Every structure is written in structure tokens, then in C-alpha cells.
Amino acid sequence: MENDVIVVGGGVVGLTTAVTLAERGLRVRVWSREDVTATTSAVAGALWWPYRIEPEAEVGRWALESLRVYEELAADPGTTGVRLVPGVHADTVLAELGPWAREVPGLRQLAPEEVPGPYATGLAARLPLVDMPVHLAWLRRRLEAAGGLFERRTVTGFEEPSARARVVVNCTGTAARELVPDPAMRPVRGQLVLVENPGIEEWFTSAKAEATGTTYFFPQPGRLVLGGTAEEGDERPVPDPVTASAIVARCARVRPEIAGARVLGHRVGLRPTRVGGVRIEAMSLPGGGRLVHHYGHGGAGVTVAWGCAERAAALVEGV
């Protein structure tokens, strides 16, 4: 066959997996319905933190493995899009987090008077904040430098890619609901507002897993990203103006200068959440091929991308 692996899906999970495989010497091709800058991943905030993702026992390990990679990539933020930025997770108690939290450098509980806005508890940390359009373009270049190929191609079933490669890796995110099909997929709508940055240099979040309305802002180059929502069962692709106004108002409760910031644009994405958590599983295909499912990363695809890619790569290689 002309390929060892075809990865279906060109978001952060698909590209990171493809890079991991190509740098092991495999002949890898990515088939993606959209360009990397038009994927759901391109809309992400994107702060490293295990948010809306399961299973908890596995997620901590995947997240820490990815954290170590991002810490290295942050040495060249202009190229990779990864920076280490300080900030605050409000409404969060360190003792209530999983064992993974003890291994995050510098993560500490704040005194009530240190927490900004109308919040009584919070954590301080210096974490990777990823400029996703830059990072996705860098991942594609890294894939191509390793000999991999990226193609715009719509996949309606796994028969075609399995005829072109001995292993197919399914990184289709929300599309797995119809493609597999997998009724456990529950897309969760997220809406963002992009504004001119009025001088904010630290990120902030108050985003409980069960909340439909969240509050966060991330300083990215050339913009401040405001969020957000977590609306299960709502798959509207068009930004809602009432929701956008509410997002700005919530963020302005923490930093009042946000209220007067000029709006640059709006974004909507569907987090690929799955009941039962991330699915990384290999199965045999007719003719002796292998299909590796790798989807359902919820709101933390960036957070676990490198750790999950290692697990998926092991299944590709039959380990």
C-alpha cells in the first residue's frame, strides 16, 4: 500500500497523532474535510486544563504528558503558538482535584483576597496558552517535514481509507456520531467573543463542568478571547447576540475594562464530548487492516493531545 496510516480528521488530535506516527518513520497521510484553520480546534481558547473530559483516571496522565511537551514548545512561541501565561482558576479548590494536580508546577491555592472578581476561592498557575491557528499550522508543517501529507478530503466511511492504508485512525471528533456511528457522542456548544485587548496579560477562568454559562478570558496575540458557554443539545453554528452580550458582561465583572473593548468577531464550536469518555480503541477491518478510534476528547483536546497520541500510536503499532 502507498500509506502505512491514514488519519481521518485534521484538528489538533488528528494532527498531533499524525505527527507522532510520522516521526516514528511511518508513511502518514491526513484526510481532513476542512483546512486546519477551519476545524473546531481552531476555535478553541485554548488553555491547558482538563475540562469536560473523561475518564478521569486516564485523563490526568495524558494531560501531564502533554503539559511536558507544551512546556518545551513554549520556548519558541512565535513558531509553535504556545506560551506559558499566568492566571487564575476561580471557583476551584486544589484539594478537590485529582492526583495529576500535584504534578503541575507552581499550582497553588489562593487566599480569598487574592481571587479577582466576585469569587471566594481560586488557584493560581502558569500554564500553556495556545494560539490555535498558529499551532495548527505549525503542526501541519511539522507533519510535512516528517514526510507526512495533508489532504482536504471528505470521508463518508472507512472503506476508502482502509483500501489505501493498512491502518486508519479515526480522529473525526463530533463527526464520529454519524461516521462510526456512535450515539454516545454529545456535542457541547461553545460560543466565544473576540475583542481588542485593553491591556490584560493574565488569563482567568470560572468554568465548572456542570455549568452552561462560563466566564473566562485568554490574552492571545492581537486579541482577547472571551467565553463562554457549554450548551449540550444546542448545535447552532451561528453566534447568538444575546449570548455574546452576556459573555462580555460576565467577563467585565472580573475586569471592568472589558466592557468597553471593541468587538473583533464571534466564534462557535462544538466540543466533541462523549458519554463514557475518550474512545481510544483498535478493531480489525475486513482484509486484515486495522481501525483505531481516537475521538471524544470533549473540551480538552488540546490538553491531552500528545498523551493521547502516544496511546493511539501504540495501538497503530499493535502494542
Rank of each mutant, 00 (worst) to 15 (best):
W48K: 00
D131I: 00
C251I: 04
F218H: 03
G98Y: 10
R311H: 10
S206I: 05
G296I: 00
V82I: 07
T174Y: 01
P187Y: 04
A38H: 10
V12H: 01
T243D: 14
R189N: 10
L179H: 08
R253E: 14
Y51R: 01
T154W: 12
S32H: 03
A95D: 12
Y70V: 01
A165D: 09
A184P: 05
H89M: 11
E257W: 15
P239I: 13
R274W: 03
G260V: 14
P219I: 14
F204C: 08
A184G: 09
P256D: 15
A145L: 12
R223S: 04
G9T: 06
V93F: 09
A163I: 13
A124T: 08
E65W: 04
G25Q: 13
V168T: 09
A252D: 11
A22G: 10
W31Y: 08
L15A: 06
A111V: 11
V302F: 05
R223F: 02
A244L: 08
V180F: 07
R253H: 15
A74V: 06
G265T: 00
E281H: 12
E113S: 15
G227S: 10
E281I: 03
A211W: 15
P161Q: 13
E96I: 02
R142W: 03
V168L: 12
P55C: 06
L143N: 04
E113A: 15
A246D: 14
A207C: 13
C171V: 07
D131T: 01
T205F: 14
S284E: 15
D234A: 15
